[in-house]
Nucleic acid binder design. Structure first.
Lengths: 194, 194
DNA sequence: CGTCTATTTGAATGTACTCAAAAGCGGTGG
DNA sequence: CCACCGCTTTTGAGTACATTCAAATAGACG
């Protein structure tokens, strides 16, 4: 089985891995196959796994006191996904991660990842970039939420990721944008008029 | 001049530093004094400094296309503040950091920080926890923005930080909550009735 | 085909916004 | 010490955007 994870890491850190470096990393990686609707992380339960999406789609979300769910992020091929809070601390996960279709993942245990980071500085570096990007994106999302109305946020989103609508149901996109499915439907209707 | 930065780091990593470890770190730290309204990081300009707030108050914000500013975070005594994006990458800062009053900071250059991290694993660990917490808080803020109305977000904020109103102007709190000053004023008026 | 789920549409409601003006507050200089 | 100025906060009236609740339509899958 051939993975494209090596290229992904090399692209992120902007340098190549030696075969030895990659092998040492790859031996601690485990292949995981999940079906649609299966949950790989469950809010409230500990999760010491970091996932790389080989193929398929997932989403992470929280459920609020009124039982409404809020999408935190989508995970597509070539993305990393985890509850980093639980992964990095020793606390229960703060959100749930669920497959939207049959999905193939590579899973890395936190202890193995720590070891690899210590042994191979490039992985430490890689991990920093991973969190850094996630953090910056998260801050940008807050700013966009405050500075743009839902219509503009939607346009920006499909501009940045035009295939999103083909890949995830519309009501999840609404949830990601922080609005109701009905509102997104109306936004799209108005948008088509122009 | 005595700093409380040592205690802060030890608390975060939940173990003590040896005198040697702390000394090695403290020698690369520089004391910075800024006046009210002075900017220590400017959006669009590179910034390779990480700041620890000894005394005083700052806020970080972005200015959108319509010229409106959006508060990203406040920095009080014992907080760390920086444009981590610019600090960790080699790109211009994505926001501005400005003192709200006369403020005393400790500044660490990125290169020194890297070196200290490499030499003293506890600092690497500390830094990870720092970003991790920032990232998790950022995600939680998104979820709260989507799941709670402005009134509840305000109540949660002053419950968590009751002295906030005494420390920063109300219009900045409004900006942090993602609403207009007029709206926060009305929210507070309604709140007093109950 | 029928069932289940997702999306669209409608009408009424609510929350926050805009624009405008008034009131409050704090600091400075006469 | 008080009057004035600039900035923050409050208040008012009208508006915009998104929500709620309900129902109709469309799509997907067995």
């Amino acid at each position: 089985m051939e993975s494209n994870i090596r290229k992904h890491i090399e692209t992120k850190i902007n340098e190549s891995l030696t075969n030895d470096e990659f092998e040492r990393f790859f031996t601690v990686v485990e292949l995981v196959e999940v079906k649609k609707k299966q949950q790989i992380v469950v809010e409230g339960q500990h999760s010491k796994l970091l996932f790389f999406v080989e193929k398929g789609t997932l989403h992470s979300f929280v459920t609020d006191e009124q039982g409404k769910t809020h999408t935190i992020q989508f995970g597509f091929e070539g993305h990393w996904i985890a509850d980093l809070y639980s992964f990095l601390s020793d606390r229960p996960a703060i959100f749930t991660i669920e497959a939207l279709e049959a999905t193939t993942l590579l899973a890395i245990k936190q202890t193995d990842f720590e070891r690899v980071c210590r042994q191979i500085p490039k992985f430490e570096h890689f991990f920093r970039i991973l969190i850094q990007n996630a953090y910056v994106n998260s801050q940008q999302r807050i700013v966009k939420t405050f500075s743009e109305d839902a219509g503009n946020r939607y346009l920006a989103l499909i501009k940045q990721q035009p295939d999103l609508l083909q890949r995830v149901p519309q009501y999840l996109i609404a949830s990601y944008l922080g609005i109701k499915p009905e509102s997104l439907s109306r936004i799209r209707k108005n948008y088509l008029k122009k």
